[in-house]
Nucleic acid binder design. Sequence first.
DNA 1: CGATTTTAGTTATAAACTATAACAGTTATT
DNA 2: AATAACTGTTATAGTTTATAACTAAAATCG
Lengths: 162, 162
Amino acid sequence: MSRPAAKGRAVAEAGVARVSDATLCGFIGYHMKRAFNVVQADLNQALKPLDLRMVTYSALVLIVDNPGLRQSQLAEALDIERANLVVIIDELEGRELITRDRVPTDRRAYALHATLAGRRLYDRALEAVRDHERRILNGMDEESKQAVIRAMSVIRRGSEGG
Amino acid sequence: MSRPAAKGRAVAEAGVARVSDATLCGFIGYHMKRAFNVVQADLNQALKPLDLRMVTYSALVLIVDNPGLRQSQLAEALDIERANLVVIIDELEGRELITRDRVPTDRRAYALHATLAGRRLYDRALEAVRDHERRILNGMDEESKQAVIRAMSVIRRGSEGG
DNA sequence: CGATTTTAGTTATAAACTATAACAGTTATT
DNA sequence: AATAACTGTTATAGTTTATAACTAAAATCG
């Protein structure tokens, strides 16, 4: 009788009543991380039926869109180490979604090309990712989307020049 | 003489002239990932002198701001597994930045508190992170920042309800 | 030309991060 | 009192990311 015990909480004190992240909320980066976690989780969920992860999906898209791409170009575009790209390419090639074609004029390099199966999966994946974005953006208006893209570009640009 | 060879490019064809990420650029998630990579790299760089990483920094901030916090509360707030939080707390405790205090009313739990050294590091870290944000946002106007925060909140909210 | 340096792809390996299951001790439920 | 649920922990395996070293081929330069 003497203690209402908020929302059915039991006797033992349960630390703080509510965790405040007010300080962290003062930083854009915090909001970006939290939101990106959601995006990544949902995206991987959306790609799972196609047996793709974020990185294999991105790689496939760039290979389809840039026929003849070299592995080192792809690694740079994806911002991952050449060494780590190898296993990704191995996987896509093993599933016969892409081919590694020796380049006659530079026998060190491989030119990457998507197979028909690769292009078909590309189409399906694109569809799945469009659905995913519609879902996570939840009816966000076009203006807001553009504002985000502009802001993200500012951040990205900053890391290049001086 | 017959071949200008764009921008001093040597004889062997170097795959595609320029990698197009136009398809991926159609997705907000892509822009977020690219930008977040930059943020994360710069943040970790900024925190390195203080021997903090993104996650240890976030944990320290939440502990300072929420005295008496339980590990399970912190794990949930940081969106990481209880099991994985243990080593993080171990590290902060080992450096005497925080203490694990047994709770008399619930002898399973530990209440987390920052030490004086922890609060001092908190202050320095906050300063460093503010500098970092100023750097990466590169003079972005307040309105754009708020637009980003609103958009990130929309994404984050979407993952909670139905 | 021939020696040296650079590049492309690869392998091996370590480090860091994440997820899962199982456990002891304690508290809550019925 | 018996059972279930919760807190922190350990162990472990899977993933991702970073680094160094290697082969083969091409570019550079005396």
